[in-house]
């Protein structure tokens, strides 16, 4: 799949993960690269973009036996953006599915 195309989708996946709970960068990277075939490093620029856009904020949290971790947290705006992007994506997927199924019928 096209890298640019994937990036938009991964942004949505990152928002979805953060909507469930606050995560640190590595956590996000691991979870997403487990499900989607993408370079591990791609998540960090996305997190930074989300922060620049005001959709997430960061805070440091001490961990037992290690340096403090930088946690990402969804802002109110980020949550709003996530819900609107999610609905848009689900609608898009549904239309694509319908189109592909019609295609199947014609081939039968």
């Amino acid at each position: 799949m096209n890298v640019q195309y994937k990036k938009g989708v991964i942004e949505l996946c990152v928002l979805s993960m953060l909507a469930r709970r606050d995560c640190y960068g590595y956590d996000v990277s691991e979870n997403i690269s487990r499900l989607i075939d993408i370079s591990d490093g791609t998540v960090y620029p996305i997190l930074r973009k989300l922060k620049n856009d005001g959709l997430v904020t960061t805070y440091l949290q001490e961990e037992s036996g290690g340096p403090p971790r930088k946690y990402y947290k969804l802002t109110k705006l980020g949550r709003e953006q996530y819900l609107s992007d999610k609905n848009e994506w689900l609608g898009f997927v549904e239309s694509v599915r319908q189109m592909l199924e019609e295609d199947d019928h014609e081939q039968d």
Binding site: S39, Y44, R48, K49
Partner: peptide, 16 residues
């Protein structure tokens, strides 16, 4: 697995 440093840096450049 991380990807090429040059490509990653370029992604930061487009990250707003």
């Amino acid at each position: 697995k991380l990807g090429s440093p040059e490509q990653l840096a370029a992604q930061f450049a487009t990250a707003g």
